[in-house]
């Protein structure tokens, strides 16, 4: 294997100084639940690995009147054991609970969840992020795409974003804290992800020399929220589709709604049409189903994944009902 330099900085300033100008030169290590397998499978072969776990400022889960701060190094166990998260942000709590592996909960981090790479089996077998064979033929559209995207794949990226937290963070209007050579900045969770146009690109709005430092979630302020994941197994299993919903009720009716889907597109998918369909109406089985219908109206399933359209509709409907519940 390629030899690499392993560095453990103790401040974020040191960390970003160690990062490279190009993706792939340097990889960032937090929980390692994804990076280790990427390296073992030669999907990434960095010359340096920067371990962030020595940076105390990136840890912790803190809830206050102004909202919730999840440090990038907070583990899934840290989030799950926080009663304020469970009480105020059930959308986040349920998304984390859906990762049913005790090992990943113990090691996996908030920042790692957002920056993990796609699980597309062609990508993981070495055919590149956009999954093409040596002739340049795209493998996903006429290959086995049962777990691939049903929305947002016009750019040629057919994988689905694997983040568990992202749909909930988008529904809750969270911001992602980023730090780089030019200092700190914040990105709306809804703007953080992107569909890459080439194999050398990444699926998020970071420069190669930036790191995620924290996630800031606004105070719930009466936003009722929930996540529903369609997973086949209780054992660790990627959701086939998921949805996170945050609703502000005005009397019986929905005053405001934010809805995001997971595992359906190369990015976590904000469902504006579903939000519009719901606003001004009381939440019922029928209005939830209509919103779900609207969320998937533009779905373009591939050859083998039309069933995911149905699963995504169910996720949206059930998340709306759970949030309102």
């Amino acid at each position: 294997m390629q030899k690499f330099e392993y560095v453990s900085p103790t401040t974020k300033e040191q960390a970003v100084a160690l990062l490279g100008e190009n993706w792939g030169d340097v990889e960032v290590l937090a929980g390692g639940t994804d990076l280790l397998s990427l390296m073992k499978d030669y999907i990434t072969t960095p010359r340096r690995v920067v371990n962030l776990k020595g940076i105390a400022a990136l840890s912790g889960v803190r809830y206050s009147a102004s909202g919730l701060r999840l440090g990038a190094l907070a583990t899934f166990d840290d989030v799950l054991s926080n009663t304020a998260v469970r009480r105020n942000y059930p959308a986040i709590w349920a998304a984390v609970e859906g990762v049913t592996s005790p090992q990943i909960r113990a090691m996996g981090t908030v920042g790692g969840d957002l920056c993990q790479r796609p699980r597309c089996w062609y990508y993981r077998a070495g055919y590149g992020l956009l999954a093409k064979d040596e002739t340049g033929h795209a493998l996903v559209p006429d290959g086995d795409n049962r777990y691939h995207a049903i929305l947002g794949h016009n750019s040629g990226a057919y994988f689905v974003n694997p983040s568990s937290l992202a749909p909930a963070l988008i529904a809750l209007a969270a911001k992602i804290g980023v730090y780089g050579p030019k200092g700190a900045r914040q990105v709306d969770a809804a703007e953080f992800f992107r569909a890459p146009g080439g194999d050398g690109e990444r699926e998020y709005q970071l420069s190669p020399n930036e790191i995620v430092t924290e996630v800031l979630v606004p105070a719930p302020g009466g936003m009722k929220n929930a996540t529903y994941e369609v997973r086949q197994r209780e054992a660790l299993d990627w959701p086939l589709a998921s949805a996170s919903v945050a609703l502000k009720l005005t009397g019986r009716n929905v005053g405001a709604a934010r809805i995001a889907l997971g595992h359906v597109a190369p990015v976590p998918w904000r469902a504006g049409a579903a939000e519009s369909a719901l606003v001004g109406k009381a939440v019922t089985e029928q209005t939830a189903a209509a919103a779900a219908e609207a969320a998937l109206a533009d779905a373009k399933p591939l050859s083998r994944n039309a069933y995911k359209v149905q699963l995504a509709r169910v996720a949206v409907k059930r998340a709306i009902l759970a949030a309102a519940g």
Binding site: A125, Q232, R233
Partner: peptide, 20 residues
Amino acid sequence: RTGRVLNPNMEFYKLAGIGD
């Protein structure tokens, strides 16, 4: 097309867990 196994791993070659 590639003639390869797509799920030669414990991630997509799925087995039941105790809860299943």
